[in-house]
Write a protein that binds this DNA or RNA. Structure first.
Lengths: 337, 337
DNA sequence: CTGAAAGCGCTTACAG
DNA sequence: CTGAAAGCGCTTACAG
C-alpha cells in the first residue's frame, strides 16, 4: 500500500548510485545532465519524492517554522496565518501551528516545538515567558514576537526579536484626531494590562492628551474578548460624567463597544460618541460599523517578520526590533471636521 | 550555541546504553525504575529532548497532520484551525498548515505535503482534484475532506473520507422557515457552482420550495467573497420583481448582502426582506446583524474529523462520510410568526 | 562527474 | 531488564 519509493529504489532503476539520486534532487550539486535525466525519469516512474524528515536530520534544517497563537477570534490573526504561511511556502518553508490553551505557552508545548527541530518560532497573540525565551536561545532557535514586544530587562541575552507597528505613535494620532474633532471627554477601553500593544497604545494616547492639557475621563479593560469588551463599555458609561468618545485598543473590541453603545445605550455614533479602534481588520469596513481606526498592515508586518526570520536563521545575528509606521483610516465613527 | 544534546550524550552521563535512554522516553518500554530515573535526571541536566524527526524516520509516523486551506476570510475556517489544532495537540499530533493560492492545491504543494511524511491530510476550504486524491491514496496517506465532499465517481478507490453537516437538510429548513413566515419571493445567493456545500444547500432549498408548489425567484453567485456577494445582491434586486427574502449560502456573504440591502437599497430587514445565512460564525450574532442562520457546529465537526482521522490512520479502513445534523438559530433577520 | 562509506539521531528486534 | 547492532532515508566529505 504505502508505495513510498526510496532513493535506493530509484538508484537501482536508473542504474546509478544512491548518491547520484540524492544529487539530482539537490540544487547546485554536481551531476551530469545525462544522469540527472535518467534519475528524474526513474523517480517519476516510481513516484519518488525525497523524504524531508531524513533530509532534515542530516542538514539540520527542517524548514519548519513554529507559529504560536493564543486565540483566533480577532480576525487580525487569521490574516497573519494566511500571509505568513503563503509567504513562507513560496520560499520552501512551512508553518507548524501551535495553539496555546491559556494564552501563554507552557513548557510542554515549547518542548514539543523544539522536538520537531523547527528552524525558528514566531509568537503571535501569545506571550513567551522569559524562561521559555531563554530555553529557545539556549537551543539556538531564533524567536520573533509578532505584534508584541518582550519585557525588555528579563530578555537580555536572549535572541528574541520583534515586529510591531508604531503603537505609541498610533495612540497619539487617535488622541489628536479626537481632540481636533471636538471630543472632550475621552475614555480608553484597553485590552490586557500586561500586553505590550495595550501599554504602548495607551501611553501614546495619554501623552497626547496630556500635551493638550487634558486627560482620559475613563478607563476599562476588555481583555481582548468580545463579551468582556461589552461589559467594559457598560462600565465606562455607568457613571455620571459619561465619555463622549472611546479609544478602543483593537477593532475586535471596538465593534463590541459599538453594539452596546447603539443598542443598549441608544447612543448615536459619531454624534453622541466617537469611536476609534486599532488594526483595521476587514470587519471594521463592514457597512454596519464603518469604524475609523488605526491601520496595521498585516502584509508589511509579515514581510518584516520573514526578513528578520531569514536574517536570524542565517547568521544568528543580533535580535532586531522592527517598528512599522501606522496611519489612521477615517470612516464614519468620528464626526468630521 | 545549538546545545542539542543527543541520546548518546545522555547515555554517557547516565552511564547506560543509548538504547536505555531511548526506552526511558518510550511509554511502555521495558526499563527498570532505577535506570529510567538516572536517565531522566541526566536528560534534564543536559536539556535533552528526543529528536522527533529521527524518531519519525524509524517509526514511520510523523504525528504531523497537514491542514490545507484556501482562504481564511470566512471566520468559520479560523475556528476550525483553532479547534482542530488544539484537539490534535492534546493527543500528541501537530498541524502543518498549507494555504493554497488559487483555492486548489497544485501538484507542487501536494508533493511538499507528502515529502514531510504527514500521517494524514485534512482539506478544508480547498478542493482536492481526483488526481491528487489518487496520489494520496497511492502513498497510503488518508485524506479527510472537511465541510466538503469529493465528487463521488472520480474518487472511487481512493481513501478520501469526509465530514460535513447535513447541508441538504439545512437548505430545506431554510425554505420551510421562510415560507412559514410568509415570504413568497425567495431568492438564492450561492457560493461557487462546483462547491459541494453550495450544491447541497441549494438542492435542499429548492426541493422544499418545489414541495410547497413554488420556486426560487432569483439566483446569483457570490463566490464566497465579500465584495462579489455585494454585487450579487445588487444583481438580485435589479429586476422588476424583487425578492422579499434571501437564502445566502454562508454567513460571510449574508452579511455582505445585508450591508447592500440596508445601505444601498434602503430596505429594512426583516420587514422588507428576510435574510438567512449558513454557518453561524461569531459575527452572525453581532448586534448590527443578528443574523438568523443555520448552525454548523465546528466542535462537532472537528470531533468527527479527529475520529475519522484516527480510524483511518490506525487501520486504513474504508473511507467514511460523516454527516452532522444542523439546526436553525433564529435571530432578527426573519420576521416572527 | 561519480560511487563507496560514514553518519544524522533515533527505535527495535535479538541475545543474554 | 539490558546492551550491541542493524537500519530508517537521506547528505556529504572523500577519493578517484
Amino acid at each position: 500500500m504505502k508505495s513510498n519509493a526510496t532513493a535506493q529504489a530509484v538508484a537501482e532503476l536508473a542504474k546509478v548510485s544512491q548518491s547520484a539520486v540524492s544529487r539530482s534532487f539537490t540544487p547546485g550539486a554536481s551531476v551530469s545532465e545525462d544522469t540527472r535525466a535518467r534519475v528524474l525519469s526513474a523517480a517519476k516512474a516510481l513516484g519518488y519524492r525525497p523524504n524531508a524528515l531524513a533530509r532534515s536530520l542530516i542538514t539540520r534544517r527542517s524548514h519548519i517554522i513554529a507559529l504560536v497563537m493564543g486565540y483566533l477570534e480577532n480576525q487580525f490573526y487569521p490574516l497573519v496565518i494566511q500571509e505568513l504561511s503563503q509567504k513562507l511556502q513560496r520560499q520552501g518553508y512551512h508553518v507548524l501551528m501551535f495553539i496555546t490553551e491559556a494564552g501563554e505557552p507552557t513548557d510542554g508545548v515549547l518542548a514539543e516545538i523544539l522536538q520537531y527541530q523547527v528552524d525558528a518560532v514566531v509568537m503571535a497573540s501569545a506571550m513567551l515567558s522569559p524562561g521559555l525565551a531563554r530555553q529557545c536561545a539556549d537551543t539556538g532557535v531564533p524567536v520573533v514576537m509578532f505584534n508584541r514586544v518582550p519585557q525588555m530587562s528579563s530578555f537580555a541575552g536572549s535572541s528574541t526579536s520583534s515586529v510591531t507597528s508604531d503603537n505609541r505613535r498610533g495612540g497619539r494620532m487617535v488622541a489628536e484626531l479626537l481632540l481636533a474633532r471636538g471630543y472632550r471627554r475621552i475614555a480608553f477601553l484597553g485590552g490586557l494590562e500586561n500586553s505590550s500593544t495595550h501599554r504602548e497604545r495607551e501611553r501614546g494616547f495619554n501623552e497626547a492628551l496630556a500635551e493638550a492639557g487634558t486627560a482620559a475621563v475613563g478607563r476599562a479593560l476588555g481583555h481582548y474578548d468580545f463579551e468582556r469588551a461589552r461589559e467594559a463599555t457598560r462600565e465606562l458609561f455607568s457613571g455620571a460624567d459619561k465619555p463622549d468618545a472611546l479609544f478602543v485598543a483593537n477593532d475586535h473590541m471596538a465593534i463590541a463597544a459599538m453594539d452596546v453603545l447603539r443598542q443598549e445605550l441608544q447612543l448615536r455614533v459619531p454624534q453622541d460618541v466617537g469611536v476609534v479602534g486599532f488594526d483595521d481588520v476587514p470587519q471594521a469596513a463592514w457597512g454596519a460599523y464603518q469604524l475609523t481606526t488605526v491601520v496595521q498592515s498585516v502584509e508589511q508586518m509579515v514581510d518584516a517578520t520573514v526578513d528578520v526570520l531569514h536574517e536570524q536563521m542565517r547568521d544568528g545575528s543580533q535580535p532586531r526590533n522592527v517598528v512599522i509606521p501606522c496611519r489612521i483610516v477615517e470612516r464614519a465613527t468620528v464626526r468630521s471636521a
